[in-house]
């Protein structure tokens, strides 16, 4: 099962990063994502497909500073 932000997620494998972000309610313009230790370039969100073996960290930014 893919691990996302430390939790095993059942319905993520097979989806693109962009599909997962949309489903999970993330705004793709406000995130940075690491997959198995490497940053995923923003332009690849539509192409990278999540696999069962993936460990993914999604950091979502909020406003204020």
């Amino acid at each position: 099962m893919a691990k996302i932000n430390g939790e095993e997620v059942t319905n993520a494998a097979g989806k693109t990063i962009m599909e997962y972000l949309t489903e999970a309610g993330y705004d793709s313009r406000r995130v940075a994502i690491e997959r198995n230790g490497s940053i995923i370039p923003k332009k690849s969100y539509e192409e990278v497909i999540i696999t069962e073996a993936d460990t993914i960290e999604i950091v979502s930014f909020v406003g204020g500073g």
């Binding site: 313009r29 406000r30 940053i39 370039p41 923003k42 930014f61 909020v62 204020g64 500073g65």
Partner: peptide, 27 residues
């Protein structure tokens, strides 16, 4: 937040020598 993401993505992608300390969530 969109500029935060722009900076963080760009630096992590292109500048592996940089350690980045970001702020998010203090309202």
């Amino acid at each position: 937040p969109e500029y935060k993401a722009l900076l963080v993505n760009s630096v992590l992608e292109h500048s592996p020598e940089t350690i980045l300390v970001s702020g998010s969530g203090m309202a």
